[in-house]
Amino acid sequence: MPKNVLITGGAGFIGTRLAARFAADGHRVTVLDSLIAQVHGDDPERTSPLLRSLDGVATVVRGTVTSADDIRSALDGAQIVVHLAAETGTGQSMYEIDRYTEANVGGTAKLLDILANEPHSVGRVVIASSRSIYGEGAYRTEDGRIVYPPHRADAEMAAGDFAVHMPGEGALEMVPTTEEAKLHPSSVYGITKQMQESLIMTVCPTLGIEPVSLRYQNVYGPGQSLKNPYTGILSIFSTLIRQNKQINIFEDGLESRDFVYIDDVVEATFLAAVTPAAAGQVMNVGSGVATTVNDVVEALAAAYGRSVSSRISGNYRLGDIRHNVADVSRLADVLGYRPRVSFEDGVKRFANWVLTEPVEGESYERSLSEMAARNLLK
């Protein structure tokens, strides 16, 4: 049966595609989004392709999750809520602490406060959590035990030692992180995402609402912001390549991430919202494959068909993790879905889209200057 679906943050990279997926299945979609300039430009109605893509797909309510009145207006009649609205970016979160906490934690609290105290028709809430809540994630010791190491020390990284260490242990091997892993985020962003998830998973069952938490890994693909310097290295590196600028590879280039293509994220989120068995579940949404930063540079060079100038600088950011790869077996067990788009294929699709977009400006350099000024970039 068609349902009324509210997507907070629904005019963003993931939200617009998710809205289209719900609409294609016959559901009625409302989007609540503040249309911030960092993502949509100063004149969203004119400058935001993401916003325009919602024409005929969803009812758009311009507002913020930090306003109870805006939430209340958008929530009217909703039966499913997908809560995507959040400030994103690990680095920026370390010096815009109040803004991140107000939007991510405060906005979620306002949503739940309304659901707890006012009439509504919501039966399920899906929260977009993040792999950032794991911190460094899972590692295997030399004798086969699974451990969760502490955050890397500034002094060790300053000396060029970027590996993950744990007191009393020898060499550690990164392994896929399951949903049962220790939660110990290494950034303000990660802390706020952990709080979002905890609030939803704790409060919703007391209200008779089914909660689902999806721990997104590094989402990429056509439509992601090329203006926002906090959206990920694929956008950043692509812009540098198109500007014929050298790519500064942090650490030693062997740090890795789990890159998951937008179409796979959208399908997993849609299924999490409509599949009865997903109720109460916490699931990783990733590819299950670790890709190093050096691999990213090589893949982009191949996708753009050009030589890429790069330099392994040894620079590092406080709060960054070393490795990241998700165990996605629960996603398959609960939803019957496994990500389908390989990184090689996804990067080609992404690059083909990027080449249709204008070359953006100097926002990445400004973001690095901001971090360096605050002693967060070394």
Rank of each mutant, 00 (worst) to 15 (best):
L240K: 15
S369R: 15
G253Q: 09
F259T: 09
G336K: 04
S287V: 04
V341D: 01
N244K: 14
L300M: 05
V296G: 06
F270D: 03
V359W: 02
N248K: 07
Y304N: 08
R338W: 03
L355M: 12
I236V: 15
V341E: 01
A268R: 11
R317Y: 12
V274F: 01
D252E: 13
V289N: 04
A351D: 01
S256Y: 05
M371F: 00
E370Q: 14
E365K: 15
L368F: 02
Q281A: 13
L377T: 08
V265G: 04
G346M: 06
K245T: 00
F237C: 10
L376A: 06
P276L: 06
S342R: 09
D320E: 11
A279P: 10
R366A: 14
A299S: 12
A372S: 09
E267S: 03
A299Y: 02
A303Y: 01
D252R: 14
P339C: 04
A278C: 10
A351P: 00
L355A: 07
S310I: 02
E365C: 05
L240H: 12
G253F: 06
A278N: 10
Y364G: 10
V308Q: 08
N324H: 13
I321N: 02
Y364W: 15
E251R: 15
E365F: 14
M371R: 12
S256E: 07
N244R: 14
D333I: 00
L300T: 06
N248E: 14
R349K: 12
F237P: 05
V274M: 05
G280P: 09
K245G: 00
L335Q: 01
V274A: 03
E365A: 15
D263V: 08
T291W: 02
N352T: 06
R311A: 08
S287G: 10
D345K: 14
Q281W: 01
D258H: 03
N284K: 11
V274K: 08
S342Q: 07
P358T: 10
A273F: 01
A278H: 10
R322Q: 12
N315P: 00
E362H: 13
L377S: 06
S369L: 14
N375P: 00
N284G: 09
T356R: 10
D264P: 08
Q281L: 08
G286I: 02
G280I: 12
L318Q: 12
V293I: 14
N294S: 13
I247Q: 02
R257I: 03
S310Y: 11
L368N: 11
V260H: 03
V334L: 00
Y337F: 12
L368A: 07
G286K: 04
I312T: 11
V260M: 05
V265T: 12
E370L: 13
K348I: 03
D295C: 03
A272N: 08
L376Q: 07
